[in-house]
Design a protein around this nucleic acid. Structure first.
Lengths: 157, 157
DNA sequence: TACTGATAATCAGCATACTGAGCAATATCC
DNA sequence: GGATATTGCTCAGTATGCTGATTATCAGTA
């Protein structure tokens, strides 16, 4: 396995690189200015209104430190509102704004198109299989990164 | 496809995140301090001695701008030597140093172990299939990123 | 040879990602 | 109830990655 080109680490990095480029291109074509990270955060906030930043980080598997800056930029763009929590004065509750909802609705087709586009070259069956294998590998390695995926405390029964 | 968890973009990001964490852990355990990017660059320089930075970027599919900083750090660690090219006064030729060769030899087992570890949870067959699918998707999307993979001008016949 | 276009490298600037440290507030245990 | 541990958030610092611009050099051509 000494050749770089057959190492899983290299292959994932490349695919991720392409995925991000495809995402940016599709979103920009649609007239929006959101990064993949910002989109994921915005979508998660829309679905789990009032959540705090730590919960948000767990839901989309981001590092807590990174979330601070991402939310900063979403707030600055007027898509998200951040206010101190009544329950826990350490926490900030996040809510999507009307502008945020509008952006989210408008950007959805571009996001879907990007997801399809990054699988170009694969048949439908291959694309599904790729996602299944990625999901399986991720499940096994979830705890290995500093930012593992966590379910929302109150979101599931 | 509205759920984040079934989007290829999200899955790749997660897997990459885990892959990098696994790499760092394995390399650190072995007593080395090299990032995945630095390792890939070092290995490419070892194999293609005297190459310039643009060629290096193409070989490992990095952005040229990023390479500058990566090589800076490799030079600072004493693993790579950078000197002006005689053929082209714009270019810098890169060579691995004795320390670089020693590091590369010593780090190899940890890198191999990391590659295996990031596929934990998959059977051998599944691991191979994942790599095949990633490779196929990457081939189809190579030109979509700013840093596509390029073969070395003189490396292949 | 002068002009034009392309190329190698770097820089400024922005946005992830991470480590490690710190502060404030909450939870827990005795 | 008070010490202790934990948690939510932020910050400083480092390393990718990218966009866009600039400088120096090279290559091809009129």
């Amino acid at each position: 396995m000494s050749e770089l080109y057959v190492k899983p680490g290299h292959l994932v990095r490349r695919f991720q690189q392409i995925a991000v480029a495809v995402f940016h291109a599709a979103v920009e074509d649609a007239g929006y200015d959101l990064t993949p990270v910002q989109y994921a955060a915005l979508a998660a906030i829309a679905t789990n209104s009032g959540l705090d930043q730590a919960t948000l980080a767990g839901l989309i598997a981001y590092d807590r430190t990174t979330i601070t800056g991402v939310v900063d930029r979403l707030v600055q763009k007027g898509l998200v509102a951040r206010q101190p929590s009544a329950r826990d004065r350490r926490a900030h509750e996040l809510q999507i704004t009307a502008a945020g909802k509008k952006t989210l609705r408008g950007i959805e087709p571009a996001v879907e198109a990007a997801q399809k586009s990054m699988l170009r070259g694969l048949t439908t069956a291959e694309g599904k299989e790729l996602m299944r294998l990625l999901g399986k590998a991720i499940d096994a390695g979830n705890e290995l990164s500093r930012a593992p995926l966590r379910e929302a405390a109150a979101a599931k029964s």
